[in-house]
Structure formats: C-alpha cells, structure tokens
C-alpha cells in the first residue's frame, strides 16, 4: 500500500527492509545509533538528523557507531564490501569527503577495473549535501560533480520520497560502490511511497512535467524549484518539460536528447557551483549530440562560484530558485524578462 511518508522516513524504511531481507547489510557511521559507551540512551540520535533512528533497536550490532574517523570507517566499509558484506556507510556531510576521499576514489571506485573485473564492491555511501540550513561553507556543498567525474562510482540523487526509497534499495542491491546523496532540505518532504520494497534502476531519468517548448534538466532539490517554475510558466503559456536525472552516473542521455529534440531549447538547473558541474556536463552532451535541434543557446542556472555563505540573506541569494529558472526559460524563449 502506498501512503504518504517523508523523504527521511523513506530512507529509513529502505534501510530497515533491506537489513531484514539480507543479513549481510550493515550500517556504520558517526552516531548512526548515537550514544555508544554513554550512560544515557543507546540510540540517542539515530543519525545526526535522525534518519537512521530505530534501526539500532531493530538490528542491534549491525548498526555501528564509529569514531570520528572517516578514512578508517569509509575504508572499512569498502573493505567489508569486498569481503562479503553489503555495508551502508554514512558520510554525515558530503563536505567530509575530504577526509576520506582516497578510500572512495582510489580504492572503492577502481577495484572492479583495476583487478580485471574480478572484484565487486557492493558498498553504499550515504551522504547529505546542499545548502539551505545556514550550515555555512563546510556543511552545505553539493560536490556530487566530483564523484560523478570518477569512473567506477554510481552517483544517486533522489528528489522525492518515492525515489529515495527505490533508489536506495537499488543501491544496496547493486554490486558497485554507490554514492547516495541526500539533500538535507528534502528530509521533511512528504510523498506517496509503497510499503513494499521496490527498486528503481540507475540511469533512468524521470520526466516530472511534460512540455513542448523548453526542456529543463535538473536534479536533487532543484527538481522542486524547476517544477515550481514550470507550473508558473505554464500559466503564461510556456510549457516546460522537466527532467529529473535521478542518477548522475550513470546518466540517462536518451531522455535528455529525446526531449531536446522535441523542444529545441534547454535550461539546465544545478545547485552546484557553475564550473565542471552537472549543468555543464548536460550542456556539453546536448551541444555534442543534439546541436542541430537547438533553436536557442543553452542556459544554465546554478549556484555561483563562491563557497556557500553563512548569512541567511547571502545563502538565499546563493541558492537557485524558481524565479531564476523562469528568467532563464524566458530568455531561451526569446522573451524579454
């Protein structure tokens, strides 16, 4: 039965159902239970924002609090994956990739290829990204373009509770390392989610609005900004097709190209900084493979090339929004703003 639950509950349910189904699935991370070794509650936090709450009570030692040692425990998750477990490690904020990146990009990502196809590394690294929490420069970044750049990693960016559950179950069942990126602002978003376990294949974009005038390719939290823009524009007679990539690696090129071939116009919306991000990547794809379909230059709407600022006014200015997307769409439609 489908019912409404939050993005955060959807992630928790996916973890719980997969842990029930497969005893090889374990969870590790900083305070994923919370309270290890203390005199108080032994599941005091259930993750810094409570996403894994309740799992320690259900699964006991299969939910492991780690010391604050990302290199060690992310590396251990990778190692455990090569040795028969299916670990889900929580890298609390994606910004902390810096203290464990070697384990991800030089180790996990390369095993399959480097060992001649003989290695499988079924590890999932769950991590929070994105601005909007006034969490400043070291806790608000996107950084998924960095992971997308690296062959051997799969990068997943759910925008809805439904996608969060299905993509996380897929990630856990997948035999390759998956970076599962959760936007912290989306945790409270509600949506219809089936109670049963289900999967969503990687590399399949979701078309969340159909339209003939402009293609908007986007991902993560920006999907909601883009649909808001598309709904506003629809009232003015401009019909946008909004494509949620859902995974940036692999990426569903066909859905992007098909849509641009129909609309002839492309706006790409990405919360990440403007250089070498998903927007530039999609723009390059379309310029390369669908140039003749384009009726207007491609426009990108992204965060600016500055670290995420702390002050609320600055952070609000930083984050792309519906108004900026609408302006970009009107521009490619040849309309004055």
């Amino acid at each position: 039965m489908a019912r409404k639950i939050t993005y955060q509950q959807a992630i928790n349910e996916a973890l719980s159902q997969e842990m029930s189904r497969d005893p090889r699935v374990i969870i590790m991370g900083e305070d994923v239970a919370g309270g290890a070794g203390t005199d108080g509650e032994d599941e005091a936090w259930g993750g810094v924002l409570g996403v894994t709450k309740g799992l320690y009570k259900k699964f006991g030692d299969r939910v492991m609090d780690t010391p604050i040692t990302e290199s060690a425990f992310i590396g251990a998750a990778v190692g455990a994956a090569t040795a028969g477990l299916r670990p889900v490690a929580e890298l609390m904020f994606i910004d902390f990739m810096g203290v464990c990146l070697d384990q991800i990009f030089n180790q996990a990502a390369k095993f399959r290829y480097m060992f001649g196809g003989k290695a499988e590394t079924p590890v999932v690294i769950r991590t929070m990204y994105g601005a909007g929490f006034r969490a400043a420069a070291q806790h608000s970044q996107c950084l998924y373009p960095v992971f997308t750049h690296i062959p051997g990693l799969k990068v997943v960016m759910p925008a809805t509770p439904y996608d969060a559950k299905g993509l996380l179950i897929q990630a856990i069942r997948d035999n390759d390392p998956v970076i599962f990126c959760e936007h912290k602002v989306l945790y409270t978003l509600e949506g219809d989610v089936p109670e049963e376990p289900y999967t969503i294949p990687f590399g399949e974009a979701s078309v969340v609005r159909e339209g003939k005038d402009v293609t908007i390719v986007t991902l993560g939290r920006m999907v909601h900004m883009a649909t808001e823009a598309a709904d506003n524009l629809a009232k003015q007679g401009i019909k946008c097709e909004v494509i949620d990539l859902r995974t940036t690696s692999p990426m569903d090129e066909d859905t992007i190209l098909e849509s641009v071939e129909n609309t002839g116009r492309l706006v790409v919306v990405d919360e990440a900084h403007p250089r070498c991000n998903i927007a530039t990547d999609v723009s390059a794809l379309v310029a390369d493979k669908a140039f003749d379909s384009l009726k207007a230059p491609i426009k990108m709407v992204t965060g600016p090339h500055v670290p995420v600022p702390f002050s609320d006014v600055l952070e609000d200015l930083y984050i792309p929004n519906a108004a900026k997307i609408e302006a970009a769409v009107r521009l490619v439609m040849g309309k004055k703003n």
Binding site: I68, D95, F96, G98, V99, R134, A135, A136, A137, Q138, H139, P307, P309, F310, S311, D312, V313, L314
Partner: peptide, 30 residues
C-alpha cells in the same frame, strides 16, 4: 550573520577566524 561580523557574515559560528590575532579559525571539519 551580519555584515559587521568578524567574517562579514560569510562564516558564522563554525568558521570564526581572525588571522591578525593569530586565530586560524574555528573549523567545521573534525
């Protein structure tokens, strides 16, 4: 988060720094 802040409102509690004073910064990374 004010403009008159030690870092112009760009850093916040976790990133307070004043290099002139030899304070190389609070740090968000453990």
């Amino acid at each position: 988060g004010k403009k008159s802040g030690l870092c112009g409102g760009k850093g916040g509690s976790m990133h307070i720094a004043d290099l002139d004073k030899g304070m190389l910064g609070a740090n968000g990374i453990v």
